[in-house]
Design a protein around this nucleic acid. Structure first.
Lengths: 143, 143
DNA sequence: TGAAAACCTATCATTTTAGTAGTATAATAG
DNA sequence: CTATTATACTACTAAAATGATAGGTTTTCA
């Protein structure tokens, strides 16, 4: 039940880009130094966020990355789902329909489905804008 | 963000014991065949549950395992926390106080703390009795 | 045309996960 | 008192995931 480094780094990368939204394309080099994350590792993370249409990329001189939408329209759910593949707590839930032949009788599956709902509901409620604003307001999530 | 096999098997083992509560000590052999989980693997899981005081063990002939408390007093949180070590979504939260020197300024930590609250709150609300009763009632968790 | 940036692919060490196997120890029935 | 049944303990292993590093290619723009 741990969020992987890929998920955590993706979130920090996206927050960094949100903090520099409106400044045009931001180079990975800058994010890397600000966030103290290996640029090479960030390079591997970025394609996931691009595939999910959360980032635009620009090659060449003065290139870099930019959010595709304003920070108020990007949720933590989108970011983590894109980086982690899915937020489902058990892998049998990842196939629709569920391929496990026992899934109809499974006594534990509904527990995991309920957990998934709770997690998704929580992450859906937090946008990049919320995160940046909280720095000032000190508002606490989930209370 | 996946629950490990150890956690999932622990839950099934505990549910099985709850279903046979009041029948005295239940041998791992029986749980193994009912749940179709390797007995040898269950043997390795059981010590975690014993350490957390969720199970009593009895050696020798007619021995086996038994819940230490009635199913209504054992929550999914206790079981999974015992099997998984902790349910905290990032490992820096596992030390009290947090040893990360940046934790005071960390912009993402409150998000993970909120997630933890949400998860704990959900699992605290489900007992083994609830799970068994749901088989009959069809009640859905978390709605 | 050259510098700066993203893009792509391969490799690797470490850790975790999931499981097998064998032996030791304890308790009870007969 | 001994055979049986069960837990307890320890070691080992294969496979996968994780977290990274490294090097070369392509694109863009000044």
């Amino acid at each position: 039940m741990k969020i992987t480094t890929r998920g955590r780094y993706s979130l920090r990368l996206m927050i960094d880009l949100a903090q520099h939204y409106q400044e045009g394309y931001i180079a990975l080099k800058d994010i890397s130094s600000r966030q103290d994350i290996s640029k090479k590792y960030l390079e591997q993370i970025v394609p996931f966020l691009i595939r999910s249409n959360l980032l635009n990329a620009n090659k060449g001189h003065m290139g870099g990355y930019q959010l595709t939408k304003p920070p108020s329209q990007i949720t933590v759910r989108e970011i983590l789902e894109s980086a982690e593949g899915s937020l489902m707590p058990v892998s049998c839930m990842e196939n629709t329909p569920n391929l496990c032949e026992k899934c109809g009788d499974c006594i534990t599956l509904p527990i995991y489905q309920g957990l998934y709902e709770v997690i998704i509901n929580y992450f859906d409620g937090i946008t990049l804008e919320d995160i940046i604003n909280r720095q000032v307001s000190g508002y606490d999530y989930s209370i």
